[in-house]
Design a protein around this nucleic acid. Structure first.
Lengths: 208, 208
DNA sequence: TGTGTAAGTAAGTGACTACTTGCATTCTTG
DNA sequence: CAAGAATGCAAGTAGTCACTTACTTACACA
């Protein structure tokens, strides 16, 4: 592994654990198995290193894509939700640390916000298409619905470690449950779900 | 204002701005208009002071109570959601900082989590009552529904400053919109909302 | 073989950190 | 007024922090 990449990876890990102030150049250098000086020669300053590490991370972020034209909303949205919640869970520490830096280092949050912004945009477009195609029998604002699904997923990914009893069990089905409940709000039916049969819905939800 | 209280208030404010590591006793003392030494004589250590300040804050937390037996779900839930989102918004900085301390100071998060835990419990009980009374025509898990509403509100309160374009406008109606959409998912009707008339719902939502 | 580049070692700088000590001052209260 | 408590001031301690300087080593490549 390249020295530069080792330092970037170590910086990301230390930052996720200790935040900006707690990420001493000493700690990062030790974690990267590199002399502290090398950091300053490669990146100039601690601030530049952390910025670079964050940039490197956001560029490598990606999750499931939603089709332009919805075909099977429950399956497509569930897939997206699950990849999104997994993405957030894997990065929950670093996201928490980054969010707590808004007051002191707003520029760092600025481009870190690109990922959820793009996710929100994708989801909004999908929900709008859903509406336009008449697949939703209820009235709704796409932005509100998108914010709800993303918010539920975000809160779950951030908070479940701290308060597991507050979130639906099991963890692995949570994203699916949020998605189902949202589709229920929009009045969206699909092949595996008969709207007129509440019994079907109930038994499916409980067995899931 | 008592010196002790001034220090506690200053500590909370500085912590909200700078986090634990950034909350130097110097800064807190200056903000409180007090000599740095006084802090150590009153609280013993920085750690004890911050703990005391957080405890003081969580004890003073309170928001709207939900009735044991639902009468007007939309009004009651909206009121609760609005008081909850306001509570979170006023404390968004300190919540972000506290959440980012989970790895390094888990005991601090432990009792800070009491507030949302209680909120979740209240909301779950209310939704269960709603279900038991046959006021919801759709099947749902109270815990999932509660997590969704709280999650939406939480994400809005934490993230709107950073990415205003992701959340429904205007800010003042967001909690109401999340509540409405959730009730739509549960199939809950009330006096001011006719389920069979989508036009009524839409016009109400847009004018609200 | 010589040169340039990345890396390491050792030592140190100045600023900041939590926290202490000793003594003088002010405030409270009996 | 007197006693005791709370507070302030000045100075200092031991440690950590980001970052620098000066010098050495290892290696790639012409």
């Amino acid at each position: 592994m390249n020295h530069r990449d080792a330092i970037l990876a170590a910086a990301a890990g230390i930052f996720a654990q200790h935040g900006f102030r707690g990420s001493t150049t000493r700690r990062i250098a030790d974690a990267a198995g590199v002399n502290e000086i090398t950091i300053f020669r490669q990146f100039g300053s601690k601030e530049a290193l952390i910025r670079e590490a964050m940039l490197h991370l956001t560029r490598s972020a990606s999750f499931a894509i939603l089709p332009d034209t919805p075909a099977n909303p429950e399956r497509e949205l569930t897939e997206w939700s699950e990849s999104f919640i997994q993405h957030l869970r894997l990065r929950s520490s670093i996201i928490r640390k980054t969010m707590s830096e808004i007051e002191e280092r707003p520029e760092m949050c600025e481009f870190a916000g690109e990922v959820p912004r793009r996710a929100s945009n994708d989801l909004c477009l999908y929900l709008t298409a859903l509406k336009r195609q008449g697949m939703a029998t209820e009235a709704f604002e796409p932005k509100t619905a998108a914010a709800m699904l993303m918010g539920s997923i975000f809160a779950d990914a951030m908070g479940r470690d701290m308060m597991p009893d507050v979130f639906p069990q099991p963890q692995t089905k949570a994203a699916h449950k949020y998605t189902q409940l949202l589709l229920q709000a929009l009045g969206v039916e699909n092949g595996s779900r008969k709207a007129t049969s509440k019994q079907t819905k109930r038994s499916k939800q409980l067995s899931a």
